[in-house]
Amino acid sequence: MISDQELRLDGNAAAGLLQELFVHEITAARGACASCGAVGEMGAQHLYMFPLSPGAVLRCAACESVLLVVVRAEGRFRMGLRGLVWLEMQDTSAAS
């Protein structure tokens, strides 16, 4: 029996899926957890996304609350974002 912990991935592994939905590279974006307030890069959060599963669940690495859910079915994506207070990404049009 494989435990949930063994199945855990990093948010980084959802980069391909998120690339279908966002213009920006989201795993390098920072966000704040609505449950515990922890701030971190999405790539550093815990991801549960298995072969053959219909979507992905990103959980806070600090408190394991759900940050973001993506479900892909019947020709659509549905995204749930209630676990994130904000999401901040690089403005690539701004001079660095």
């Binding site: 990093d10 948010g11 980084n12 980069a15 391909g16 690339q19 590279e25 795993t27 390098a28 890069e41 999405m42 790539g43 550093a44």
Partner: peptide
């Protein structure tokens, strides 16, 4: 193929 992917583990 889809990629390159990811900007975190870099």
């Amino acid at each position: 193929l889809r990629g390159p992917i990811g900007g975190y583990f870099v």
